[in-house]
């Protein structure tokens, strides 16, 4: 796995078919799921400084923009015709504009902002609850794991409507000591129209 950040879920799934060495174990599944539950607990508990320590300083953190594309006539009858990835304007392409493409320094800025008195859009702060599911380890190579997971994030803040964010995270985790850090994260949001106060949360 040389190029870890640029591969989509579908690319890696097709590669997975050819990978015989990678054996999933209940222990690894348990370990990774527990890791994600802890991450969600830190975020819902507004413990963003601790959360940031789970991010690699080399992280690439992005959220593609999701667009309505034309169907390609040649793809009629094939799964590619309506593949999710066709709808994404991603950080690695220059044909579109992702909603977010950030590095560690920028995540740090978001975390710092959360603890300032004058971050008005989150004052008072939102009450959130993340449910993480469908945790699937797709690949393992040396010290890295490619993992996808789904989330529902409930978001409530005084003075506005409640919102439900739904999406998938496509992560590369790096083994560091006894734990893991996120080396790359791509967040594929499920929305028809962006009817949310912000897409700038820590997902």
């Amino acid at each position: 796995m040389s190029e870890v950040s640029g591969m989509s879920e579908l690319d890696s799934m097709s590669e997975l078919d050819n990978m015989s060495e990678f054996k999933m174990t209940p222990e690894l599944q348990f370990e990774i799921e527990q890791w994600y539950y802890r991450e969600a607990r830190l975020l819902d508990g507004r413990q963003y400084q601790q959360w940031l320590r789970l991010m690699s300083e080399q992280i690439s953190y992005s959220m593609p923009s999701r667009i309505n594309t034309q169907v390609n006539n040649r793809d009629r009858g094939k799964e590619e015709m309506i593949s999710v990835d066709r709808e994404l304007e991603r950080a690695q392409d220059m044909t579109g504009c992702p909603l977010r493409e950030e590095n560690f320094a920028f995540l740090m800025m978001r975390v710092d902002r959360a603890y300032k008195m004058n971050s008005w859009a989150e004052n008072p702060p939102a009450r959130t609850r993340r449910i993480i599911g469908n945790v699937e380890v797709l690949e393992q190579a040396s010290d890295q794991l490619k993992v996808i997971s789904n989330f529902h994030l409930f978001y409530a803040r005084p003075g506005t409507r409640d919102f439900l964010y739904s999406g998938q995270r496509r992560d590369t985790l790096q083994k560091v000591g006894e734990g893991y850090k996120v080396l790359s994260r791509e967040i594929v949001m499920d929305y028809g129209a962006i009817d949310y106060p912000t897409m700038g949360l820590l997902f």
């Binding site: 959220m63 977010r100 859009a121 962006i194 897409m199």
Partner: peptide, 14 residues
């Protein structure tokens, strides 16, 4: 642009 403005921007959310 996207870090500061647009729906995910840290400034435009305010």
């Amino acid at each position: 642009y996207s870090c500061f403005f647009g729906p995910g921007g840290i400034l435009e959310q305010e």
